[in-house]
């Protein structure tokens, strides 16, 4: 019932399959215009997820991140004490760098391509691409090592077509239903973690009225369906799809982490601070200062 609208609204355009020659040349051109020291270095087990967060914070635009499940031991390592009884393995640390000057939406697009390229130069691991939708930018996997170490085409769990039957649920329950539908469609468990500290945290920020509303996804790409659901929210949400590798196939799973976008601000004391954007899409919310004490402003 939402298929047509979504396809018009969300036309995915791969803008940089990072191992493509043209893309590399384009990115190198941009990089050559930047002084070598005019970049922010990121070393992380998920450097592009960290880069997505950094760009969101400085630009106030949604940049999501999705990774594939890693199975090649060359990409993975143990973290002492974090394998448990399930043989968990983790991505090896790698790096990327962010261009320091990003001043417009088109610059953000270029910055993302630039960041992916820097990441790919510093690692022989997973190749990513940038997609664009009405919701924002999406870093998604393009190529990944198979269990033998060969680079093969990769997909995200959110590329799967899913079916969520129509039903009246809370926003959180719709999100959980979407996660269950991805699990059913792919055979890979996808847990959903949305403001996990508060039982009703996601519903509060979503601010559906009425709290239970009808929604469905019928043979919809999971990412399209997720955007369709989140577009009904009073708050801009971003996501990080992280996957847990393991020596035991049945212990592998992915987590869709959904959180409000955070932005970098300077607080009243002149100190840098991160601030989550709450109710930024709300048309009928009272000003926050009328419902929250001064300490929360």
């Amino acid at each position: 019932m939402i298929t047509g609208d979504l396809r018009r609204r969300f036309q995915m355009v791969p803008t940089n399959v990072c191992i493509g020659l043209g893309a590399l040349l384009f990115v190198q051109t941009i990089s050559s215009q930047q002084p070598a020291n005019d970049r922010k270095q990121i070393i992380d087990r998920r450097p592009l997820a960290a880069a997505a967060s950094s760009l969101e914070e400085t630009r106030g635009k949604i940049v999501t991140y999705e990774e594939p499940l890693l199975t090649w031991m060359g990409d993975l390592e143990e973290i002492p004490g974090k394998s448990g009884t399930k043989g968990y393995l983790y991505p090896k640390e790698s790096g990327t760098s962010l261009p320091s000057a990003v001043s417009s939406a088109s610059d953000l697009h270029s910055a993302l391509n630039d960041t992916l390229d820097a990441c790919h130069k510093q690692s022989s691991g997973t190749r990513f691409q940038v997609l664009q939708s009405s919701w924002g930018y999406h870093i998604t996997p393009a190529m990944v090592h198979d269990s033998n170490g060969a680079l093969v085409a990769a997909t995200s769990l959110l590329d799967a077509p899913i079916y969520v039957p129509a039903g009246e649920r809370t926003a959180k329950d719709h999100l959980l239903a979407l996660g269950a539908a991805v699990t059913a469609a792919t055979g890979m468990r996808m847990d959903v973690s949305a403001l996990p500290s508060q039982s009703a945290g996601f519903d509060n920020l979503f601010r559906a009225n009425p709290a239970r509303f009808s929604w469905a996804a019928e043979r919809e790409i999971a990412r399209d369906a997720l955007i369709d659901l989140l577009s009904k929210s009073a708050t801009s949400f971003s996501w990080r799809l992280n996957c847990q590798a393991s020596t035991q196939p049945d212990a592998r799973f992915c987590v869709l982490n959904v959180n409000p976008v955070s932005v970098a601000i300077t607080n009243a004391n002149g100190q840098p601070e991160k601030r989550a954007l709450w109710f930024d899409r709300c048309a009928d919310c009272p000003p926050l200062q009328q419902i929250l004490p001064a300490t929360a402003r």
Binding site: D44, R45, I79, K82, Y90, P91, S193, L195, P196, S197, Q198, A200, G201, F202, N204, L205, R240, N242, C243, Q244, F253, C254, V255, N257, N259, P260, A276, W278, L292, A296
Partner: peptide, 16 residues
């Protein structure tokens, strides 16, 4: 929580 966990850093929304 630790760097490498598939779950994000703990976060909170507006209070109750």
């Amino acid at each position: 929580w630790y760097s490498g966990s598939p779950y994000g850093y703990p976060s909170f929304g507006p209070g109750s």
